[in-house]
Design a protein around this nucleic acid. Structure first.
Lengths: 142, 142
DNA sequence: GATAGAACCTCCAGCAACTAGAGCTTCAAG
DNA sequence: CTTGAAGCTCTAGTTGCTGGAGGTTCTATC
């Protein structure tokens, strides 16, 4: 039997986080000692491992909850799990695209900035310029 | 002069968000009408544009606050702005790397899932397998 | 069996960065 | 001068945790 600290260590989770997962019903209430301390078994270790891996993959706790429900009643179609994964993939692809655009822009900012005075600092200019991506028609009186 | 709603529309910001930026001191308190409604000018439009663009670029509000401070007192060295940008770039690169790993895994999950019953659904298996990335030495009693 | 101190317990508060709603007032058009 | 959209303040909720206060339990050592 594992203490909450042991479970935390094995799954790379913080103790507080485990208790938090319990309060939101993602993990079941575990056994307790006479004194009231939590004790965990293999099932708990597996379930928490599943949750943590899902989180690393970028699933929301709600998505993970859905997946766990699916896994708990394995009579339904797998299409549900598939659609959750597809939804996630789409989000991930969007995020990557936006981040890559950002990466390019930051690189440009850094390249153009020659450590002079702020007066001719390009980092600030880039941001200022783009604050005018809202160009003319976004200016007051246009 | 713009109303808060007009400013919101022009910058693609929600009205509540503008008021929020004001309460945290990111935007200055604007002029008010007799009746107490906020009225904004070009400066506010620029400043909020700067903030929103920074947010889209992934800067935290704190980082944006630093940049705005820099822009407000342009006597200091530009090295500060540069280092903020570098810090951000590193974070962005990390995020991209993690997301790409995730993308691959999700694609595999979807590819392997053939819309059968959950019994042989690979989506759940992938997550289950990896919950055992904590392999043997992570099992209780090992 | 006493004791020390690490690890546990509950409860509350807070983080970022907003978002939403209740209940009320003001503005601007017709 | 009325009407209804848009404004106002204030409070509370969101997601996914994290930290602290103040107190109890477990376990190892003497």
């Amino acid at each position: 039997m594992l203490t909450i600290g042991g479970l935390a260590k094995r799954t790379g989770t913080k103790v507080q986080t485990i208790r938090y997962y319990e309060t939101i019903g993602l993990l079941p209430e575990p056994e307790r000692t006479e004194g009231g301390q939590r004790r965990y078994g293999q099932t708990d270790l597996d379930r928490l491992g599943f949750v943590r891996h899902g989180r690393q993959l970028g699933f929301s706790l709600e998505a993970i909850r859905e997946l766990l429900d699916l896994a708990d009643n394995p009579t339904q179609s797998c299409a549900d799990a598939d659609s959750i994964a597809r939804r996630q993939l789409k989000q991930v692809e969007d995020r990557i695209a936006r981040l890559q655009a950002l990466q390019v822009e930051l690189q440009r900012m850094i390249k153009d900035c020659g450590h002079h005075s702020v007066a001719d600092c390009r980092v600030l200019e880039v941001l200022r310029d783009h604050s005018e991506c809202l160009t003319d028609h976004d200016r007051i009186g246009a």
